[in-house]
Design a protein around this nucleic acid. Structure first.
Lengths: 240, 240
DNA sequence: CAGTGGTCTAGACCACCAG
DNA sequence: TGGTGGTCTAGACCACTGG
């Protein structure tokens, strides 16, 4: 939290959550907020914009800024906009996550991976398969591919803890975005073996390419969940 | 296209797509763009912000604004940020979409629906089930619930064409956002009957609540696809 | 260090919605 | 019509990157 508008957004967010600004009422108008916070209106507007992207309020010309009912997705349904990785996400919820490394290899990328990670055929990659175990129960199988040169000195130890922490804290990398697809699939061998499911259990698969701030792709991964253990959620706001 | 920054964003977007600004090169710096377009820098910045949200460029302090490789998701993988409905989406791609109405009823909302659409128990709702048929093949089953008072005079005829067109053009409603969840599921009776699949075929289910601009929920729906007919994709950019 | 984009200001005008 | 938020300006200072 550094900039003025971020601080103001936090303050207002707090007031919404604790009921100072009740659901369905209007926020004080922007000129009043200018007076209260002693900043320019552009700054106030930017703060409100953040809250709008979070789905907490909705502004409309001529009408004001309304506090929306957020209780809906306020619970454990965390949006997917997190590049903290599972470990961190679960830690926040005080849930115990273990990772068991099923495969940890080095190899060369096939055509598909070359295209997705913008690699040449001779650039080596890590090929990783991990089983993530939540509260003692098999939760998800993650197939991960990363270019070796971007992620030096990867070890089994890191894989068993948190790769993201290593990338962020250890290597100082900054994530900039992700491209994801969702599909359903039949269970395959690995799924049946490690997720304790059978042929008829559907699998929810999420594929993602993760990008660094400068646009370099750093990871391609497939996460396969048993159909009854997880769903993903998205809040989509039209800012136009 | 109304505001200056939207026009400028379109111009720059066009230059990126036709190669005037090649992938991996840098955009002219913001002060140069100020001179070219004869606007203030804040306006240029806002234009670039739009392109950043679209994943076309990435800006960084001290470095400039880099054109990213967008060829990846430039094709038919349209982001889900469209409230045009399936009909319109398919029309753009010149694909033929038919809709067959399986159920069209009125009733009262159960507890779950009351909560999701913010309704009282005695507010009537439409209960609709439609089979959407793409290019002659069963594509998706949509279960839709809408409050009657917000959508007057709904007819079978409208359901067979495009509900969204009716809401937008006919009723003048404006969409503001959506909340979606994705999960996999086993095939149930309707799926087997209409999607021509059997017990072992997984289903991809997308649930969504759609909101109007002022935050009023107007629709809850479940879309059930055969696992091999559809996937959804999202581009997720970190703007911090 | 020079050059970049990010933030911020103190105004202004306009488009929209309500009464 | 009065009040709202959306846009836009012409500056300024700062934080960050690269050489």
């Amino acid at each position: 939290m550094q900039t003025k508008y971020e601080k103001i957004a936090s303050t207002i967010r707090e007031r919404i959550k604790n009921g100072t600004y009740p659901v369905d009422s209007l926020l004080p108008n922007q000129t009043d907020l200018v007076l209260e916070f002693g900043v320019s209106r552009m700054t106030i507007k930017k703060a409100i914009e953040i809250l709008m992207m979070e789905g907490l309020v909705y502004s409309q010309r001529g009408m004001g800024t309304k506090i929306l009912d957020h209780s809906f997705w306020d619970k454990d349904v965390s949006p997917i906009k997190e590049y903290d990785g599972l470990s961190y996400q679960m830690e926040k919820q005080n849930k115990k996550l273990e990772s068991s490394v099923i495969k940890f290899d080095v190899g060369f990328p096939n055509k598909e991976i070359q295209k997705k990670l913008l690699l040449k055929a001779e650039q080596p990659i890590y090929q990783i398969i991990r089983l993530r175990i939540l509260e003692g129960k098999p939760f998800v199988i993650e197939h991960t591919i990363m270019p070796c040169d971007l992620v030096p000195n990867l070890t089994t130890d890191i894989l068993e803890k948190s790769v993201y922490t290593y990338l962020k804290k250890g290597l100082g990398l900054q994530f900039g975005g992700a491209y994801r697809t969702f599909q359903a699939d039949r269970a395959e061998e690995h799924d049946k073996k490690y997720l304790e499911c059978d042929d008829s259990d559907p699998i929810l698969e999420v594929q993602q390419v993760i990008y660094l701030k400068d646009g370099t792709p750093i990871e391609f991964s497939k996460s396969r969940n048993r159909y009854d253990t997880r769903s993903y959620s998205i809040l989509d706001v039209d800012y136009s």
